[in-house]
Nucleic acid binder design. Structure first.
Lengths: 337, 337
DNA sequence: ACGCAAATTGACAGCGCTGTCATTTCTGTC
DNA sequence: GACAGAAATGACAGCGCTGTCAATTTGCGT
């Protein structure tokens, strides 16, 4: 009923083991044999059984994408990454399992153990903020499961993909300065997230490079959410000399800033320039459209998955590739009033 | 190295087969034996190997979530559904694979075949607009793979979850009418999507119930995207007697309407009331916040998955459960000018 | 043509579980 | 207390593939 490896072997006149070798792209198969087998597989529409492969060998052709759905950055971000990962997996005949994790208690590690143990997961894609969760990385190492990270903070020896967020933030704030802004507010993301750090660092770099002071009262804590953007913006507006521009560490908070500005009767960009980071769909759905930095999440997911699979296949050592950012200058920023 | 079923059997003093029976919750096991085995499993921290179970038996404890990532409704919608599905799977020791499908050509069906064949997928969660893709459903039937649908159009005998979108839309538009609006525009979603039909039907119902005419010039085609909302809104504004309220078939298009209103210098809600549908995060990130209908996507994903798994376990026949909607009246709607 | 190392290929067991069917142990009944 | 029939358990093969290691073929130098 099902075409088995043995059937292919019989049809080709070789042993099952040889077919297995072809299937697994082992090198010790004569090219002519390989071609014959490949042809037979094709014509018989043979599809190996992952269950059998998993049982017999060690491989499972399964990778897992780990994400934190509690301390969750915008869901579109993760959705795009997932899409990219699936895309790459597809191309390499891997399958992916999505695994939401809650970074709380020991249960967290248990889930990872269970996942790896039960499904023979071969590798893992780790997304922020899990990328720097020491116990997780530690456990993965113990389990011998390679992982590729997306935007990890510790890049030493990491494999995966990253972007120069600091440079991007600096470019963005520099743009504001060039527009004549001198009092520029910044709303931080969740503490300890790499994104928060890099974006703050870039903000400071830009100010310093322009000879402007870094004034702590213009830097407020946020947590990447729309609501936290609103709250922080209100505080900034309450300052005696309120900023003429605000750089929020992500688009959601920038949207919050614009919301708060509306509330105060401040017109964007006439009275206030606003910019964010990530270029989520939201950015172009706001009025006015938001100046931000495009982060190619989908592409990043794909690249990370490719790095991981290359590594698993033993080809290449697995690298941390860097993707370029793009400034998206839109109408939410303008010359200083 | 790994605790196997056999180990548990030895520890309990029964045959492997009996342990297997306990594992699979078969009924013909004496209660006292069952308890002993269960206790041993627990204390030995036994975890069955999905690969072996898949190979030997027919079960895989895997369900797939199928979605169309081309004709994609807002990604947050799918992300929330996925979260709900994963939640339910987790509770029933099932695993889930996310499967983006492109509804084009024969390749589409091939992918489904491959999925079911390769991974022994036991059941499928189908999301709109795949819920009414005849060839897909047909194939699933042929393959003998049960599926649960989320908001299917053909509810006859379907299992899954739905919401009375027509009633919800009617309630929403009725609210507009009560606010004094007489010229109410509607922007349609993608043709043939259930969501588009129901929301239009509800819109008409409300008008008719209030004795108002259904004027075709106020009903424009959209495609659920922000951009299509902008385009449709512009056309509505160009009408000699433009509407004082617009009901867009989803939040993204409603955001587009608000964008276009800004462009025209129309003040929402003073000059124009706008409402959407779905209550995506976007709804509260707009200024003013959007009046819409809350659709509990996460919950729906969870319920659909539960229905599917109940069905797979042979418990219950699998039902089409209906979830309640909630009107979210916010500041984007007000009395007619 | 002969010998030897390297390159290919194959035989066979077994991965951890479940299906099938046989066997044993209970029930309740007369 | 013996017996039919149901309830509970077990023996055994095998799911489709790969690891190990042995067997065979090939290529090449002399």
């Amino acid at each position: 009923m099902r075409v088995r490896l043995e059937d292919v072997a019989r049809a080709t006149g070789v042993s099952p083991k040889t077919v297995s070798r072809v299937l697994n792209e082992e090198s010790s198969v004569k090219e002519s044999t390989r071609q014959k087998v490949l042809a037979a597989m094709e014509s018989m529409n043979y599809r190996p059984s992952p269950a059998a492969r998993g049982l017999a060998g060690s491989r499972s052709f399964l990778v897992a994408m780990l994400y934190d759905n509690n301390d969750n950055p915008a869901s579109t971000y993760l959705a795009e990454i997932q899409d990219g990962v699936l895309d790459a997996c597809d191309a390499h005949r891997f399958s992916m399992m999505a695994c939401p994790l809650r970074m709380r208690g020991k249960d967290f590690i248990r889930r990872v153990d269970a996942l790896v143990h039960d499904h023979h997961i071969e590798g893992v894609i780790v997304t922020p903020p899990l990328t720097d969760h020491a116990p997780l990385l530690q456990r993965l190492r113990e389990l011998g499961v390679p992982h590729a990270s997306i935007s990890p903070q510790h890049r030493q020896g990491a494999i995966g993909v990253c972007m120069d967020e600091q440079q991007a933030a600096k470019a963005l704030v520099t743009h504001l300065i060039e527009q004549g802004h001198r009092r520029i507010g910044h709303i931080l993301g969740i503490a300890n997230h790499g994104a928060s750090r890099w974006r703050l660092a870039g903000y400071k770099d830009a100010l310093t490079a322009a000879g402007l002071p870094v004034d702590p009262q213009y830097i407020l804590q946020g947590e990447f959410s729309f609501g936290s953007g609103v709250l922080a913006a209100r505080q900034l507006f309450d300052l005696p000399e309120h900023p003429t521009a605000i750089f929020a560490a992500n688009d959601d908070m920038a949207a919050g800033v614009m919301w708060a500005a509306n509330e105060r009767g401040l017109k964007v960009p006439r009275d206030l320039s606003v910019c964010g980071f990530d270029d989520t769909p939201l950015a172009t759905q706001l009025w006015p459209p938001l100046t931000t930095v495009r982060q190619p999440s989908r592409e990043m997911g794909k690249l990370a998955a490719l790095q991981l699979m290359d590594h698993l296949r033993g080809r290449g050592h697995g690298l941390l590739v860097q993707v370029p950012y793009t400034l998206q200058l839109r109408e939410s920023t303008a010359k200083a009033p």
